[in-house]
Amino acid sequence: MAWGKKKEEEEDDVDLESGEGAKAKKSKKNKKGKSKDAEAEGEDDGEDGGKKSSKHNRHRSATITALMETRQQASDQYAQAQKAERAYLAKKHASEARTNYTETKTHFAEAFSHLAAGFRGLWHVIRTLPHIMAHRRAEGKRKAELARRARAEERMRKLEEQLARDAEGAAGEG
């Protein structure tokens, strides 16, 4: 590489917080976790009282980035699945509603036609009611006449029997 830099020290990284591409140097860290640059500037744990140095690494590790990306993809897939589920249920319910609507419409059409037929029949019954009543009266009179005749015949039979007994009783006495 140019200017005597090693290949490991220079790399294209993306600053995730600002969203811009930047070339950054990877600093080598010692056992304490501080970079050589920070040691050169005289920063160590005792001076800051445990505070972070002003030059902290803003880049996330590849593992965290991959996990965040996986979580985001899963979230997007979940949202798409929910949307698809709502669309499926809406389609299913709409289909059921259309079926119910057509059946109900058919039932109401039949009900209204039957209601109309019922009212027409009622009108005909009302119009012919005098004839029906006259027929019932005539039938009642005929039955009453038959019953009266049967009673009269029964009376006549009993009277004839009575007369026959009286005639026998008078003939036997005399």
Rank of each mutant, 00 (worst) to 15 (best):
A167P: 00
R151V: 02
E139F: 09
E161S: 04
R148M: 12
E139G: 04
E160Y: 05
R165I: 01
Q162F: 05
A171M: 05
R151N: 10
R155P: 00
L146T: 14
R149M: 03
G140V: 03
E161Y: 01
E160Q: 13
A150N: 11
A170Q: 01
A167N: 09
R165Q: 11
A150E: 11
K143P: 01
E154R: 13
A147F: 09
K141I: 15
E139I: 12
G169S: 04
G140S: 15
R142M: 14
R142H: 15
E160R: 12
K158M: 04
E161L: 05
K141H: 12
R155H: 12
A167Y: 06
R155F: 07
E153H: 02
A170K: 03
R149K: 14
L146C: 03
D166P: 00
A144M: 09
E145I: 11
A167S: 03
R165L: 05
G172Y: 08
R155V: 09
A170V: 05
E154N: 05
L163Y: 02
R142C: 10
G169H: 08
L159F: 10
E139D: 12
M156P: 00
L163F: 05
D166T: 02
E168N: 07
E154V: 03
G172D: 08
A164T: 04
A150S: 11
E145V: 08
G169C: 06
R149C: 01
R142W: 14
L163D: 01
K143E: 15
Q162K: 12
E160P: 00
E145W: 08
R142L: 15
D166E: 12
L163M: 09
E153C: 07
A147T: 11
G172L: 10
E168W: 02
E160G: 03
A167G: 00
E161K: 06
E139M: 13
E154F: 03
G172V: 00
G169E: 07
A147K: 11
K143H: 14
A152W: 07
K143T: 15
L159Y: 06
R155S: 09
G140N: 14
E153M: 12
A167K: 11
M156R: 13
L163T: 01
G140Q: 15
A150F: 01
A167Q: 06
R165C: 01
R149D: 03
K143Q: 15
R151C: 02
R149H: 04
G172A: 09
K158T: 04
R165W: 04
D166Q: 10
G169P: 00
L159S: 10
E145Y: 07
G172N: 12
R151A: 10
E168G: 00
A144L: 11
L163I: 11
E139C: 14
E153P: 01
A170I: 06
A164L: 10
Q162T: 11
A144I: 02
